[in-house]
Structure formats: C-alpha cells, structure tokens
Simulated assay, not measured.
Amino acid sequence: MRENASHIPFSELVSVNPPPAGKLSGLVPYVGMADVTNEGRLARIVERPAAEISPGQPCFRDGDTLVAKITPCMENGKGAFVRGLNGATGAGSTEFHVLRPRPGVDPRFAYYCTRSRAFRLEAEAMMTGSAGQRRVPAAFFSRYAVPNRTLAEQQAAADIIDAVSAQERAIEASIAKLRSLRAGVLLRAFSAVEGGKVPDGWTRVALGNVVPRVEYGTSEALDRNRQGLPVLRMNNIHDGKPEVSDLRYVSVPVPARLELRYGDVLFNRTNSIDHIGKSGIWREELPRASFASYLVRVNPDPSLLIPEYLVEWLMHPVIRQRVRSISTVAVQQVNVNPSRLLELEIDMPIERETQRQIVESLHVLDEQINRERTELAKLRKVKLGTVDHLLAGNG
C-alpha cells in the first residue's frame, strides 16, 4: 500500500474474484444469495457435490468477503464475511463478488469497508446492464477509494465495530429467546387447537358461528399518489398488526363501508403458500385507510369473541396449516375461499375475560419484543454511523 496517500483504491486492499487454488472435489461448502442476510451475515452454509459447481462460480475461503453484485440484492446489503469453513474452499452464486484481503490487511477491515453507505451508493452508481439485471462490475473495486490505514489502525477500527456487532448479536439472541417463549405460551394457551377433548369452560364451534360475515376489500387500481386514500395490501400485515411504511393509494372514492375501523380483523386470503392466512388487527395506525381485495375483514361478534383472540387463533401454527390445506392454487399464488374459512372450527374460552387473559399474557411478551426491536434498530444506526465514520471512502 502507498504510505503517503490518504485514500487508495479498494483493489489495493483486496484481490477481486481470485481463482480457486485447486480443483474442487467431494462435497463443497456452498453459499447462495438466499444464504446471506441484508445485515451482511452468513445465515447458512450448505453442501453441494463438486460436479454441480460450474467453472464460472466464484470460490472463497475463510476471511474472504462476499458482496452481492446484482440489483436489488446489493442495494439491500446482501453479503457476508466468510467463516466456519475450517480450511475448506467454498463456492457460491455467480451473483457474488469475492474479495480476498491481501497480505498485511485485516480481513475484518476489508469486510467492514463493504458495509458503509458510501460503498453501496457508489457501487449502485457504477452498475451496468438493463433494469432488473443491473450489476456492479469488478472494475468498481479499482475505482472505489477507501481510507489508507496501517494494519494496526485497521485492527483498531475493526475492533470497535466488532464490539458494536457483539451488542447487536446479544439483542438478536434476546429477541429470539422471547419469540421462543411466546411460541411456548401460545401453544400451551391454545392446547385445545390440537384437537381432542374440549377443556371445561371452552367451546368448539365453526368460525362462522362467531364471525357473522366476511367483507372483501376494494378492487380499485392502486398507485403511489399520496393524495389518495391509503390502502393496505397483503404485504402490509406482519406479526398480527399492520405495517404502514410501504403503502399504495386509491384515487377514486371508496365506499364508507370499506374504510377501516378500530378493531377490524384482516385476513390475507391470497398470497404465497408460506404467507397465506396472515392476519392482523387495525388500531387506527392512520386516520383513514381502506384494504385491498386480497384481504378480507373477518370481524367477530363482540358478545362472543374478542378480536384480539381471533387474530391469535388465526396466527396459530396449527390453524395456519389448516388454512393452507383448504387453499386452492392460482398462478404463482394460493387462494382461500372465505366460505371455507368460516367452516373451520375454533376452540375458544366461553368467557371473554378468559380470552382477554390469554391475549394479555401474549401481549406482555410482545411489548418486551418490541422494546428489544427498538433498541436493535437504534444500535444498527449507531453501527452504520460508526462504519461510515471509520471506513467510508471519500477520496
């Protein structure tokens, strides 16, 4: 590396897409695009026979960095620091660039350089190709400048970011533990759902006995014009509640009966097989909103069933499986006929107070999870700011 320059081309720190050291054989560790996260981590490593690895697929080893080259994976942050191969050579998707640190370069420093906002923005600006198939060329790494640091300075910067990353992983582990605890509480509270004898104080009836009617949402065309009425779509339901950060809007008048009201229960009747049946409850997250026809409103009779209990029942793993079993396959999606949904049997406490107690025990855990999520979001902002401050190239 040049001693007097404040910034140097990234390619002086790393070798880009180095060739494999030898011929692959046996079972080869393999990483596809789905095996890395938007946070820049390896989610899993699978194995593939060497015969299935084509000559054009990139190879890597421990200490290398994977960077997604194709849109939108690159912009979303897809990539990973490679570890856990124990001396083996791995192979991956052709949509990865492999960066191998040169001698005298801390591998973590090279990896963290790819996690800055400046790196993503400049890589995006240099993408080539048509829409939907745009890629970052290998030449980008010769043009992108990174801070010129001694090995000791690289290690110090990487140590600081590692410390923040350790806190990040600790919070993620806490969230996972709370989610596991919630799943256990859900399974115990809804044990009657598994079938068999109905407990004392409970009843088992067709859902249609406690949900008087099902209402379809609007079928009007939607757009991004914020002057219209916000409309919830199938991707706006997450973890039992609406997500209103990515909305579409309807520009024509919508009947008043199709506007959402506090406490409305929404059921996703059309989606992929993994997401069909997602449900949530509307808590007036927006002053006014409607819902698209891929969703249906399934409000219960409030004298028999509280809406919060209905949502928890709809999200139960056993019920999600029953919903899948009554779905029909359409083009790239599956659909649930609401009439079939109302035929499913719901197990529920007769007393609404008991229903509330069950829901409250779950919501206490939800509040803890949400607090941890908030802390995680704050920490990730701190981490990104730290990376930008220490490692972003601006030469």
Rank of each mutant, 00 (worst) to 15 (best):
A192I: 05
P212E: 12
S219F: 08
A156M: 12
L178C: 06
A173Q: 07
L186C: 04
G208Y: 10
A166N: 08
E168Q: 11
D200G: 11
S251R: 15
A221L: 14
D264S: 04
A166T: 13
A189V: 05
V265M: 01
L229P: 01
D264F: 01
R226K: 13
G277C: 05
L260D: 02
S142T: 09
R188V: 04
L186F: 02
A152D: 14
R261I: 11
N209L: 06
E172L: 02
N268L: 04
A173Y: 01
L151T: 10
D274V: 07
G228E: 09
A170S: 15
L266W: 01
G263N: 03
F190K: 01
P255A: 15
S279A: 13
E243G: 09
S191A: 14
H275V: 03
P230S: 07
S245L: 12
F140I: 05
E153Q: 15
K177N: 09
A166W: 07
I175H: 00
V214S: 04
A173L: 07
G263M: 03
E215K: 10
L247H: 03
S272R: 04
I273N: 12
L258M: 14
P199L: 10
G201L: 09
G240Q: 04
S191M: 09
S191C: 10
V185H: 02
R179I: 04
L178R: 03
A183D: 08
A206F: 09
N209E: 11
R233G: 05
E168I: 05
E153G: 15
L232Y: 09
V244Q: 07
N271Q: 03
R226M: 08
G263I: 04
V254K: 07
K197L: 10
R233Q: 08
A158Y: 03
T203A: 13
L258R: 03
G201Q: 07
V211C: 08
S272P: 02
G277Q: 02
E243C: 10
V205T: 15
D200R: 11
I175Y: 00
E243W: 08
L222Q: 02
L232Q: 06
D239V: 10
D162K: 13
P147E: 06
Y262C: 13
V252L: 12
L181Y: 05
L232W: 06
G217W: 01
I160R: 15
N236I: 05
R261H: 15
E168D: 11
R143Y: 07
A139V: 14
V164L: 15
P199R: 09
G195F: 07
S191P: 04
A163F: 09
D274N: 11
A156S: 15
H238R: 09
S165C: 10
F140T: 01
N225A: 11
V265G: 00
G277T: 03
H238T: 07
I175V: 13
P147W: 02
